[in-house]
Design a protein around this nucleic acid. Structure first.
Lengths: 237, 237
DNA sequence: CGAGAGTCCTGATCTGGATCAAGGATCCGG
DNA sequence: CCGGATCCTTGATCCAGATCAGGACTCTCG
């Protein structure tokens, strides 16, 4: 196993702490496990499962689902390649939402207690985790901010803009991509209904801001979209 | 200075990692600084200020303000004694919101790079910070969940219930307390208008769920309130 | 190739909370 | 004690987005 090592992983720039000596990469690599791929619909973990590991997505996509207190499920976020899932479990000792594959998805497993030990020895790694946690925390705040005061069209603009930025981070096109999630997922995540999402998409198409056919997205006017999104900090995940 | 040491601080149970040897408390104490009290309205830090320290509130209360992208200010959260402010700055290198005193407020300053160093030597401290970050992250997710799908009355129930829980954590009454924030603050935090907050309070009073006079709160039916809040995870901060 | 199940789009209506407007209450400085 | 400002409450109206109801398109599987 481990035949695809961190050393030659295309995502190393995203998922590894910056400026880690090669010898340290070996030590991290020794702890990371790569499993078999998840099929679309498979769960990586479920809300309430005992927490032991963080997961780094290397290909595909996850959707995070929280069971709202009324029993309804809401989409709490999406995890794209180079991003981490499971951070909420650290404090709660069990996962605070479910993670489900939206596509055939590969993940790397990071056993948390081993990573904690390693953090004590590799200062860069400790700081990396502090930053990862802090980043997700800020993202959650931005999302709340958006849900509490932005209109439907702005929310969708923020959402598409966010996906675009995350595509760019992986070196992919920021103006053409395929959404891994359905309209229902988007609606749930943005606190809207699928109907409203559809309507707003048509509205934005009318303004020449987007061209969307099913899940295929083209953003002909990234500047206009960014304006509408309002330079919102990355209210996505 | 430092005449009020962590050793004899009433909040030590809340703000210290559990089961830290006395010798380690000394080392943490050596890094923590206590400043003079903030007056109501004073800013502890402002959105965009360079990040150097975390702050632990020891008395009073802070309100966290985010400048939404449209220039409007939204209340992003409240920090009560025993809770930490500034965690968002770790990733961003600068504070991601402003912290303003709602009352005369005392805070302990934790210079972050010193704490990071100490984390490497005191395993319990490292874990403590991981947990604190993870907890706030989950809180943000709960808040989003609430904003995207709960009605005004439920939001207020979750809010009051959350304050009650936090009072209890400090050993204070969970059914009688004084709110440190105004109706406007509450409304902004919950994504509502002050008018709606007022109306919903009257409505809840009619049901015998709350008795509120100005900022004085009495919760005669904590069970009913908890039901309405829906066992929501702590969507507060 | 045809039936069934999703998913997506569109139209008509309804409603919770925003907005607008105006009184009271409370607090402060002079 | 008074004048002004701020905060809280209450009432009347309005609207963005939810809800309800179909219809079209795309998969998949027999």
């Amino acid at each position: 196993m481990n035949h695809l090592k961190c050393h030659n992983c295309a995502l190393a720039a995203l998922c590894m702490p910056h400026s880690v000596p090669a010898a340290d990469v070996d030590r991290i690599e020794a702890v990371v496990e790569r499993g078999r791929p998840l099929q679309s619909g498979d769960y990586l973990f479920r809300d309430g499962d005992a927490f032991h590991s963080l997961y780094m997505v290397s290909s595909g996509a996850l959707r995070l689902i929280s069971l709202a207190d009324d029993g309804e499920q809401r989409v709490a976020g999406f995890v794209l390649p180079g991003e981490m899932a499971g951070l909420g479990g650290i404090a709660a000792k069990s996962y605070t939402n479910s993670a489900q594959a939206l596509d055939t998805t590969m993940v790397c497993r990071l056993p948390f207690s081993r990573m904690e030990d390693l953090c004590r020895e590799l200062p860069g790694l400790q700081h990396y985790f502090f930053e990862a946690l802090s980043r997700d925390l800020v993202q959650g705040q931005s999302l709340s901010m958006m849900l509490s005061c932005r209109a439907a069209e702005e929310r969708l603009a923020v959402f598409l803009w966010g996906i675009s930025v995350r595509q760019g981070r992986r070196g992919l096109s920021t103006t053409r991509f395929r959404l891994p999630m359905s309209r229902m997922d988007i609606a749930s995540y943005l606190g809207l209904t699928p109907e409203t999402v559809s309507r707003v998409i048509q509205q934005m198409r009318g303004k020449g801001l987007v061209e969307i056919d099913g899940r295929e997205v083209h953003l002909p006017d990234l500047t206009g979209l960014t304006d509408l999104a309002g330079a919102a900090s990355e209210a996505t995940a």
